[in-house]
Every structure is written in C-alpha cells, then in structure tokens.
Design a protein around this nucleic acid. Structure first.
Lengths: 243, 243
DNA sequence: CGGGCCGTTGAGCGGGCTCAAGACATGTGG
DNA sequence: CCACATGTCTTGAGCCCGCTCAACGGCCCG
C-alpha cells in the first residue's frame, strides 16, 4: 500500500497527529481515483453538489469564490499532500471553487467512504478534524492579513507562509521554492490589484529581500521578509496536536 | 438533563446534523463549568495553552487577533449556542483570543472530555466536525468580504449575516436584533476605521435601509440590504449536512 | 461634577486603484 | 518562417475611497 496516491496526504496528516496503524491503513485503503488537471481547470465548482473529497497528489491548486460582479477572492493555496474539500463529506453544497494552478494530479475519494471511515475509525476521524482545524487557523490569518496589513506586508506574509509550508511538505526550502501564481492571482489572494502587486514586488526585489523569476521565489533575506510581513509561524501550528 | 447549560449548543448542532440519542445524551452529559464574563473580559487568550472548549450559553463574544503594532482584526462574532474554541481539544496553542462583547455566560468543557467523546461517540464527533466546517465556511466568506467588497457592502453583509444567524438561533428576527458591537469593533471586523464605519452607517440610515440605536439593529429594507451587501445565504449552509 | 466611552463631524492627505499603453514570451496556424 | 493572438509583466498619470488627525457633544457612572 506504500505506493498509494494517498501517501502524501497521510504523511501530511501525520505531521500534526500520531495515527495508529489501524487508522493509517484504513485511510490508505480508501477507494480513490486519480485524475489529472491542466492549469486553470476546475476540481470543484462553487454552488454545486460534490460527492467526493480530494487529496492533492502533485501540483498546486487554489480555492476561490466570486464576489459581486466578477471580483475574485483566492481563499487558500494548496500543495501536494494537502486535503481539499473535506467539507464535501458532510455539507450539501460547495461554497467555493477549487482550481488547478499548475498541472495537477488529484485523488478523489467518495464522500460516502469518508463518512464510513469517520464512523468506524476514530483515530482517522481525529486526524481529519485536526486537518480542518489547522486549515481554519490559516484562514483566520488570511482574514487578518487582508484586513489589517499594508499591501507590502500582505505579500511578504503570503510569501513566508508558502515557503514554510513547502519546506514542511518537503517540496522545497523556505527561501527557494516554486510558486505558480501570476501577479494577478497574487492580487486576488491579497485583495490587491495586479498592478500594485507588481510595484510591491519590485520594491521588495530592489531592496534585496525577495525575487521571483519564472514562478520561482528566491528569498534573499528571510529575516527581513518575516519582519516586513509581520510573520509569526504559530498559526500554522507546526507543533501539531495534543495527545 | 434538559436543563443543561449545553442545551443551546446541542440545539444548534442539531440544526445542521441529526444526532442520535446515544450521542446527544453523551454531549449533554459532558462535564462543564459555567462562568460569567463582563464585557471586554477574555475567555481565551492568544498564544497560550487552553485545556478546555467552550459553549456560549448567553450573550455575545468575538474572536480576534492582534496584528503588527496593535491593529486588531475581529475574526468572528459568536452568539448563544455557538461553540467556541473547539480547536482547543486538539491543538496545543491558541492562535487568537476570545473576548466577551456583552455580559456572557459560557460553559467550559475540559479538552480531555471532548477528546474521549470524540473517540467513543462517532455521531457526536460528526456533529462537532460539521460545526467547525461551517465555521470555516463563514471564515472564508469574511475573507472574501474584506478582500473584495467596498466599505458599504462589507458592513451591509455583516449586518445580514448576523441577522440570519440570530433568527436561526431563535434570538431575534433578521430585521430586528441586538448587536452589541461599537462602531470601532464593527470596523475591526470589516477592516475599516471607526470613523468610516460611522459615515457608512449614516448613509445606510439616511437611505432608509437600516438603522441602529442603542446596539439594536433595525433593518427597514431587508432586500435592499442584501443587495447592497451582495449577500447570499448559501455559505451559512442553512440546509445542513448530508445523511 | 468630573472622567470615560461612544458617536459625530470636518479638513486634508495618501495608499492603492483605474485606465491605458507597450514589451516580451509563448503558442498557433498558414 | 512569418503573422497573429494571447497572457503576463511593466510603466505612467491621475484620481478616489477610506484613512488620519482633531475637536466636540451626549451619555453613563462614580
């Protein structure tokens, strides 16, 4: 079972909670189907029914919702190992869309299978709950980021977060990683316009703090970036869960 | 057990999921201690350990975090029946504070008791998970609200949400309810300054859409308010959870 | 009667937006 | 191989929404 497409997902869960082998095997044995998506294509659509839950096998995706007349808010960025749309297991309708940012491979698990797992394997249920609790903590930080910080701080903060998360996921190091977002998408994630994102990035680059070429971020001064972005890791709950 | 302080909480859970009597009784039988808080006092503090979970018995509270040098973002508003800090059951450190907005009675449940309940009563676990999933959906909407909407729309949107939630909780009707937030706190919730909140509220009042006196909101034109606030209820998941 | 807290008002400023155009890279079809 | 379209990044100029700073009035409470 070690070759399961769900392995990155389970590995991520285990970074936050210890999972006994009974539960671990049950998660890995979940029925699933791996699908491939091109950049821009949708894994889930807002305001529709979704009868499956998803684990990202490779690539990057984002959650977003459309507001008013076309304005778009990116709510989260997902990378390999992340669980996506766990709420589909229990909620009737989706309240946001999931879109591929790069070439994506995603494993879809029937919602029904997640519901039975949840009922029969408390340890697995706990792991899934912890996952959603941490996602919620990240969402809170994004709310605060957009609500209270300056444009420069918002972008610096996002760059710090993605760096830390990729390092934790073993996809790169915090000061050198891939980030396949256009400046417009970075703007949609931070509540800024693409034009202003461009100017802020130029500022950060000219001050030797961070640069980005071909969708690859290189942080040249990590400490300064965290300072600019008012970044404190605690909200990512790196320590994980209690016994 | 019908007189339990946890009854409003269980009632709220049951609005979203059906709970069998086995699980229902177990939740009501959770050990808890009810405490009283004056407006402004803290139920939980950011960056500290919390070994209990909380159910709001009466009054209003909010979640917030401090950003940078003193700026404050209000992340959520809670009312009677809401669960607060469920993440304390499994996460080591709090990432935000909980503060009373009015006179509050809150029931504190030891984290350990929630963990055993979660392990022994899958139906109760499911109900708690659904609760956090819906809270997360609300948090996403707040992110989008602050990130993409104008000042006027942000405030209109919040007023709609609180109205609907109070009506659902049986605490008032959507167009007439108590909202014990100062204009400054309303600003902290929407990423605006108190001065600007004041001007926006005056605008809404002068157009005969909504008025607020002594912390009581009266919506004189509900349809117009939802239009101004670009408000669509779906994110509150009123239908609840799937079988 | 004094001191907070809250709501209100005015005047001026500025961060980020809007609109518009151009550079460059990639891909596509003829 | 070129013509053309598309998407992204870049730059400039002007403007406006919401902020800042400051003052005042009403209310509650000691």
């Amino acid at each position: 079972v070690t070759g399961s497409a769900l392995l990155p997902f389970v590995t991520k869960l285990e970074r936050h909670v210890a999972i006994g082998s009974f539960d671990r095997e049950a998660i890995l044995a979940l029925p699933h189907r791996v699908e491939q998506f091109n950049p821009g294509s949708y894994l889930f659509r807002e305001d529709s029914t979704a009868d499956s839950v998803c684990a990202l096998v490779s690539g990057f995706a984002c959650a977003h919702k459309i507001v008013g007349l076309g304005a778009r808010q990116i709510l989260a960025v997902y990378m390999a190992g992340d669980g996506i749309g766990l709420e589909n297991a229990f909620l009737e309708l989706t309240d946001h869309s999931i879109q591929a940012l790069s070439l994506v491979h995603a494993a879809f698990i029937p919602a029904e299978a997640v519901r039975s797992l949840f009922a029969s394997h408390p340890g697995a249920a706990r792991a899934l709950w912890v996952e959603t609790l941490i996602d919620a903590a990240i969402q809170r930080e994004w709310t605060a980021n957009i609500g209270q910080r300056s444009a420069r701080a918002r972008i610096a903060h996002v760059l710090c977060e993605i760096g830390i998360r990729q390092e934790a996921a073993g996809l790169g190091v915090r000061n050198h990683y891939e980030l396949p977002l256009t400046q417009e998408q970075l703007g949609d994630a931070t509540g800024l316009t693409a034009v202003h994102v461009n100017r802020v990035l130029q500022g950060l680059r000219s001050e030797g703090i961070v640069q980005r070429e071909n969708r690859v971020v290189t942080v040249t001064d990590w400490d300064e970036l965290t300072k600019e972005g008012d970044f404190l890791v605690n909200y990512l709950h790196p320590a994980g869960a209690a016994a």
